[in-house]
Amino acid sequence: MKTKAGCIVEITIIKNSNPKTKPDQNNLGFGNYFTDHMFVMDYSTEKGWFDPRIVPYGPLELEPSAMVFHYGQETFEGLKAYKNAEGKIQLFRVRDNLKRLNQSNERMCIPQIDEELMFQAIKKLIEVEKEWVPEAAGTSLYVRPFVIATDPFLGVRPASTYKFMVILSPVGAYYKEGLNPTKIFVEDQFVRAVPGGTGFAKTGGNYAASLKAQVEANKKGYSQVLWLDGKERKYIEEVGTSNAFFKIDGKIYTAPLEGSILSGITRDSAIKLLRDWGYEVIEQKITIDELVAYHNEGKLEEAFATGTAAVISPIGVLAFKGNDMVINDGKIGEASQRLYSEMTDIQYGKAEDKFGWITIL
């Protein structure tokens, strides 16, 4: 295969001699099972990225002093492979995920990776693991590319050696509620990210910073948290690992991309679909107090979150300062339902792909 720069690269394949028994497709959950193989490629300042290979899935051997453990220099992505009605496997906006991984890499001082090489690595790995792509309704094969710093060194600086890897996991619904509206807690004590930080990058530290608030919200009976901005703690940002949308008096609002939230690919897909249907989508800051006022005036018609894992997650309840705001009588809204149906139909090859989002393997 050729990289974007025209270099010819061969991917070595070492087959797993002890394949696993595949799990029940109707009881997958999310992130519980992993396929028989993984992709691995190494980096050094002397060689650049080298030795791309597909090997049996298994433990890594790293020094206890590997820098990823101590300074968190790592990035990752998440996308899905789907099986269409003809039995072909297809990916949704894979090139956008790979572009975003390199944007995260740049922020975390990780060397850029040839995007064509990453695509070919994912394609080849899925070809090897094609029997792992589930066919049950609502299931898919989750694809997790990631990079870790591997230098055995205790000092704060960018590493000089890395591993780029891809692992695969057959998955069902991300939330146990499925498409049923979730209960979300508005977090006004803890903060996850601030402008100028790493909020826009997919790096583990952002998610580690969110765990405390999520645990506290779960204790109170809520599925996730709605984050406010880290500076003034009043502007709405995102829901847990997803981008947030609000339908207010017929218009749809979502937070602008200003460096503290993720540039969601599902977010962008939702915006494009909504605008194509004639909705006015406004990327604008909204305070939590404004949202409460809209709810009290009966103008908050629906709310939902978007992300690769759950696709569309309707919000039925927002809890803020001891009050539960019930949205649309706790039912899924019209825009949320249409977005979920249209986007998943495109992903599974049931609807026209007018935006060129699908790559058939």
Rank of each mutant, 00 (worst) to 15 (best):
E116Q: 15
D151K: 02
E135G: 01
S104N: 10
E131H: 12
F146P: 05
V147M: 11
L98Q: 05
V143D: 03
D96T: 02
V156I: 15
P111I: 12
K123N: 14
L141Q: 04
P134K: 09
Y142V: 04
E106Q: 15
K123T: 12
L154C: 07
R107Y: 07
P158L: 11
M118S: 02
P158T: 11
R95W: 10
V143Q: 03
V94T: 11
N102A: 07
K124Y: 00
C109P: 01
S140I: 03
I148H: 10
V147G: 07
R157V: 10
V133H: 00
Q103K: 15
Q120H: 14
D96L: 12
D114S: 13
E135S: 14
F153P: 00
C109D: 11
A159E: 02
L101D: 02
I126L: 11
P111F: 12
G138Q: 05
A121T: 08
R144E: 04
G138E: 03
R93G: 03
G155S: 12
R157L: 09
V143K: 06
L154W: 09
L91T: 02
L154M: 15
V143M: 08
L91A: 10
A136T: 04
C109G: 00
L117D: 03
T139C: 02
W132A: 00
M118Q: 12
R144M: 09
L98G: 00
S104F: 06
S140N: 06
P111L: 13
E129D: 11
R157P: 01
V128I: 14
V133R: 00
C109Y: 12
N105C: 15
A149G: 13
F92L: 09
V94H: 09
W132H: 00
R107H: 06
N105K: 10
K124S: 10
I126A: 01
P145Y: 13
